[in-house]
Nucleic acid binder design. Sequence first.
DNA 1: GACCTGCTGCGGGATG
Length: 743
Amino acid sequence: MTSSPPSGSDRQSAFDRLDPEIRRWIWEQKWEELRDVQDRAISAVLDGSSDVLIAAATAAGKTEAAFLPILTATAGRKERGFSVLYVSPLKALINDQFRRLDQLCERLGVDTVRWHGDAPQSAKDRARRNPRGVMLITPESIEAMLVRRPGEAKAMLGSMDFVVIDELHAFMRGPRGLHLASLLRRLDALGGKRARRVGLSATIGDLHKAAAWLSPHAPSSVAIVQSGSDAPELRLQIRAYVDPVDTEDPDALEVDGKSIALDHIADHIFENLRGSNNLVFGGSRRRVEAVADRLRARSERADVPNEFFPHHGSLSKELREELEARLKSSELPTTGIATTTLELGIDIGSVKSVAQIGAPRSIASLRQRLGRSGRRQGVPAVLRIYVRERTVRLDGDPLDSLRLEVVRAAAAIRLLLEKFVEPQSPEGAVATVVLHQTLSVITQVGGDRADRLYEAVCGAGPLSTFPKQDYVTLLRAMASPEAGLVEQAPDGTVMLGRNGERLTSGRDFYAIFSTDQEWRLVTAGRTLGTMPISNPVGVGGIVSFAGQRWKIVAVDDAAKVIEVARHASGKIPKFDGVANEPVHDLLSERMRDILASDDMPAYLDANAAAYLLEGRQAFRDMELDRTRVLRAGRDTHVLTWTGTEMNSVLALALASAGLECSVLDIGVTVVDASPVEVAGMLGQIAAAPPSLEDLSEFVMNLRTEKYDDYVPEGLLRRTWVAARRDESLRLRDLASLLCRDQG
DNA sequence: GACCTGCTGCGGGATG
C-alpha cells in the first residue's frame, strides 16, 4: 500500500500544531523534516477522537509519531494520575524507549517512569506519591498492580488519556494478547473513562484485525496510519549444503574427523560476514550454540578477534545485553547469532545482512527478520538462507529425494515476494484467560456476584466470545472441592477459595503464559527424556525421539507423561517432523508448485539449483503430479500439500479409523499400511467424514495453556472444535481428492 | 527433537 507524499503546506501545518517546546526539541535534534508517518500520525491524534493504528517498518520513527502529538495533547493536564500508559511486551524495549522519551519529556516537564520487574523501586515510589505523566509498563506489571494494589491502580491509572501499545503484532496471537486486552478493559473501567488507544506495529499482518484488537466495539473507526512503501531493494540467496551419509546429528557441536554441512556454512559466514554487523537466525538454541562455537573456533585459528556471539533465551541477561550493546554501538564489527530473541524491536542499530539457517517455516517471521536489515535509505537488504540436505540413500525414504528443504526455502521466498503474511489463527486459550481474569477480578474487588463477574471479564472485547453458559460451567468447576479456587457465600457472592488464595498470592500468577511444558517420555518404566509436544497426539500415534520411532501407548495428561513402546517399522523420516513450528497451507501448496514447475530462480546457488532439479526429477519419476498416495517401505505417505493444521485433522480422521499416523509438513504418513488400504480408508472418510466432535475424542493433550488443568474437559473440546471449523469443512473434499488421485 | 515473553513484597545487609 502506498500513500502520496503530503504537500509542503500540510507538512508545515502538522509541525506547527505541535507544542512549542516539542518544536524546539525537534530543531535541536537537527531533524530536517518529519517522517511521513509522523506527519500523518500528528493529524490523526490531534484531529480525531478515535483510536489510531500506526503501521511502519522498524526504525521509521513510530514512537515519536505517537508521542509527539500525544504529549502535545496532554501538555496542559492538571488532573492527578498518569495521562499516558505505554505497554510493551519486553522489559528491554521499555528501557530503550525510556531512554528515548525521558529527555524529551524532561524538557516538557512531564514525568516518565519505567514500571517493570527490574525497574528501580525508588522511581516507582516517587510515582506513587505523585502520579502524573507517562508510565512505561508490561502487561504482567499491570496485572500485579490490579491484584496487589487496586486502590493505587485507580489513583494512578484511572483517568488516563492515552494508552500506547507497542509491537501490537506481538499481542495479536496467543494468550498474552487476550490477557492484555482484558487488562486494558479493566483499566478503562477503573475510572469509567476509556483512554484512547494508539497501536504501533511493524508492517506485517492484517491491519483490519489489528484495528479490531484495538477497538473491538468500533474497528472501522480506527484511524490507520501506514507508512508509504519505501521497502529497500532486496538481495537474496539460497545456499545449499549436504551432510555426509552417516551424519547422526546435523546440529552437533563437533564431529571428529569430518566436516558436516554446518562446518561449511560456518566457513561461508566467517568469510562473508566478518567485518560488519549482521544477524544470523539459527532456529534452535542448540543450533545457535553449534554455529557460534564454530565461528569462535575459526576466529581463534585465524588469530583474529572473535566477533560472533550467541543470543537466546537460556543465556543470562548480562551476556545478551553485552551483545545488544555491541551491535548498537557499531564500534566493533559484530554478528549476533540468535533464536527468535533478536526479532522484536530492541534497538540494535542497522545491520548489513540477515542470514537464516534452515528453510523458513513462517513468512511473518522471515519478514520480521528481514526488517532488521537495510534500514538505512539506499542500502539494499541482504538475506541469505542456508539449507542443509541429506545424502540420499537407496534404502531411504522416497520423500528424501524431493529435496524438501531447498523446495521449502524457495517456496518461502516466493510467498515473501508475493507479500503474503500468515493471518493469526483462531485463539484456543480463551478458557484459560477467562479463568485467570476471573480470579484476578475477584482478588481486585474482593468478591462479586457471578453475573457481574461475567460482565467484568467477558462483557466486551475478545473474551466476549466465551458464552455465558460456558462461564457457569467454568465457575462450577472452579468451585468444586477438588479445584477449591472459589467459593460462594450464602448471599451469592463469589469469593476466593483456599487454592484461589494460594494461586493469586504467588508471583507466578501475573503472567498468563507458563514456561515450557515438557512431556516426559517413558518406556517400560524408564524415562527416555523430555520433549515439548504442541500438536495433538493420541494413543496409537507415532513420535520420533532419541533416534528411534515410538508408538504412544498411554497419555497421562495431568502428569505430562507419555508412555511409549519401541516401534520397529521403517526408517525415521529424514525431514522435519511436527514438533516444529506449524506451516501454513500456502507454504505447503507453493512447495508443490515449485516442484511441478520448470523455472529456475536466480537466487539459488549452484548446489541449491542442482538439488531443485533433482527434486523435480524425483517428483516426475514418482508421478506426484498425478498421485498423492505413495508407498514408503511398509508405510504409506499421503501427500496433501496443505498446512500442519489440516494435516493434523486428517491424521486424526485416519487414526479414528484405526490407522497409526504421523504428521508431515506436506501430508501424513500412515504406518504399516499399504497404499490400497489407505486409499480405501480415504474413500470412507470422503463418503462419511467423521465429525470434528468425534475426532476431538482422539486428541489427548488438550490441556496446553497455563490454567487448563482447572478447565472442564468438555469445554476444552468445544474450544478445540470451534478453532478448526475450517479444516472440518475441508476434510471431505480433501479426502475425495486424495483417493481420486490415487494412481 | 522450534522459539519467546513476565514477576510482589519483605527482610537483611551494605553504603552514603
